[in-house]
């Protein structure tokens, strides 16, 4: 596959096996800045492994991943960690907020880890919480807010460092459809206006409908539907 010009993150011929189980078998991927791409496919098709490889969390057995022209698979662990902290944001299905911290402290956490002062980090965090309509929860702890609210706090945290790519793995999987769609609307609006790309793993069509295009993963191989149809 030739990646379209201007791609921010490109993966070619990714292969990954866990013991005898092949998770990825020549998967391909590309995304532009500000683009929302849904990764769909049945359970066990390899879509989460693809996301983990793209995000530099898992190293593929072979194949190449380039982010902004740099080969991610050739980076050291420290370089990859730095890339994840500075350029990537993450939203998962659940269990991602630190229960002992307040919501604003949770959102500010990535900035604090990168060395920002508490005051400065929390000011930026609050601006994102306003955007995600959860600023009134700033002093509450994750245990005191609803699932939908908690997920919006998590989205605010994923965006607080102004990442170039947000990786969202079933971000609405634990929510009812009303709250799930509100999270998708706020996430994609915020990402598009900040020109942040979103890699969205989902099995729900209504969630995928918030994307610009989809790729389908089956048996570890990907299919870019826009370039096929």
């Amino acid at each position: 596959m030739t990646a379209p010009a201007g791609s921010l993150l490109v993966a070619r011929d990714l292969r990954k096996a866990y013991g005898p189980t092949t998770a990825l078998d020549g998967a391909e991927f590309s995304i532009h800045p500000g683009e929302v791409v849904a990764v769909m496919g049945p359970s066990g098709s390899g879509k989460s492994t693809l996301l983990h490889c793209l995000a530099g969390i898992v190293t593929p057995d072979s194949g190449s991943i380039t982010y902004d022209g740099r080969e991610v698979t050739a980076m050291s662990d420290a370089e990859r960690s730095a890339l994840r902290r500075s350029a990537f944001g993450f939203v998962f299905q659940f269990g991602q907020l630190v229960p002992e911290l307040t919501c604003v402290e949770n959102v500010a956490l990535p900035l604090r880890l990168s060395g920002s002062s508490r005051k400065e980090a929390e000011r930026t965090a609050l601006a994102w919480m306003e955007r995600l309509e959860v600023d009134d929860l700033r002093k509450k702890r994750p245990g005191e807010v609803s699932g939908g609210q908690g997920q919006r706090v998590a989205v605010a945290r994923s965006l607080v460092t102004n990442p170039r790519v947000v990786f969202a793995d079933e971000p609405t999987g634990a929510l009812d459809s009303f709250n799930g769609e509100r999270v998708m609307e706020l996430l994609t609006d915020a990402a598009r206006s900040a020109n942040t790309a979103v890699v969205l793993v989902t099995h729900e069509a209504r969630v995928a409908a918030y994307s610009d295009r989809e790729i389908v993963v089956r048996d570890g191989r990907s299919r870019d539907m826009e370039r096929v149809v």
Binding site: M40, D212, V216
Partner: peptide
Amino acid sequence: LDGQRSEHLRSMRILT
């Protein structure tokens, strides 16, 4: 089935 999913999603994006 892949082609049909894609066509459905196209309609769903417009509606969304």
